[in-house]
């Protein structure tokens, strides 16, 4: 049986994340009550695993690091069809940068045991570094392919994948175990079904903290993070807007005039 781990993250809803702002006075974050959702690209990662499951015997574990509230997105993944849900949650994991996050997740993958394939979204919508997949692969001593847009799984343990480049793609053969980070072009994620939600009710989520992973507190969270944020500031705008007024027709005419003036037309 093929063992797949899908790493997922709870992120501030990208549709409302613009409400999180830096307070110009205190230079701290105003969180603006934005709800947490499953990172959009992680849906593609889970979908990749679920699609492979239709053709082979597969066990899917969903793994997330986050605060206790992140259990809701792990639950969502169980309702979508994952077999096991693990939440890595501990005060000590807080404040992790990409490196410490990758390390913590790698320890989770290791404790879960014998992964053949690890899927991640290419990036999270809030951090957007793209580092967690490749760094975790390095820590697990597995090969990685980033930006995967097509997968041809093979039973003989070497998979063929296409990975997006700025101006084309690479076609590669990868020996398992391996880590893949996926793009939204890979698939169209399924949506929650009523029966899935019912089934997921019976599934429990495993929670592991620092002691369960047996890792040193120096290697996780803020302490285990090589990088730190030292300063936040707001930026001053240097332009002054002139509104083009009038009826819709007049506005369009004036805009055409402007475009002629600046040489576009």
């Amino acid at each position: 049986m093929l063992k797949i781990v899908v790493c997922v993250k709870a992120v501030p809803d990208p549709k409302a994340a613009g409400n999180i702002k830096i307070d110009p006075q205190t230079k701290t974050l105003l969180r603006g009550n934005v709800p947490m959702v499953l990172n959009p690209l992680d849906k593609n990662a889970l979908e990749a695993a679920l699609q492979i499951k239709t053709g082979m015997e597969v066990h899917i574990t969903v793994l997330s690091m986050g605060p206790p509230e992140a259990a809701s997105i792990v639950k969502e993944c169980l309702a979508l069809g994952a077999d096991r849900g693990i939440l890595l949650s501990d005060r000590g994991f807080g404040g992790a940068d990409a490196f410490a996050t990758a390390y913590t997740l790698a320890m989770g993958v290791q404790k879960n045991g014998d992964a053949d394939v690890v899927f991640c979204g290419m990036a999270s919508s809030d951090g957007a570094t793209e580092w967690v997949g490749p760094e975790m692969a390095t820590m697990l001593d597995m090969p990685v392919v980033t930006m995967v847009r097509e997968i041809i799984p093979h039973a003989d343990e070497a998979w063929e994948v296409k990975s997006a480049l700025e101006n084309g793609y690479r076609r590669m053969r990868v020996r398992l175990p391996a880590v893949f980070t996926v793009t939204r072009d890979l698939n169209s994620p399924r949506t929650l079904s009523f029966s899935g939600i019912i089934k997921a009710r019976k599934k429990t989520i495993t929670e592991w903290g620092l002691d369960d992973l047996g890792v040193s507190a120096e290697r996780v969270g803020l302490k285990g993070s090589p990088t730190i944020v030292t300063e936040m500031r707001t930026v001053e705008n240097t332009r002054k807007v002139e509104f083009i007024e009038g009826t819709r027709e007049e506005k369009a005419e004036q805009l055409v005039q402007k475009l002629v003036e600046v040489g576009v037309l």
Binding site: D97, F99, A102, W131, P134, E135
Partner: peptide, 23 residues
């Protein structure tokens, strides 16, 4: 932050156990 850099930078950073800032 090219196709290569986006994959290679985290691979190198993880091997050197150091920090990496994106974009």
């Amino acid at each position: 932050s090219t196709s290569m850099g986006r994959e290679l930078a985290p691979l190198v950073a993880a091997r050197l156990s150091t920090g990496l800032t994106a974009h």
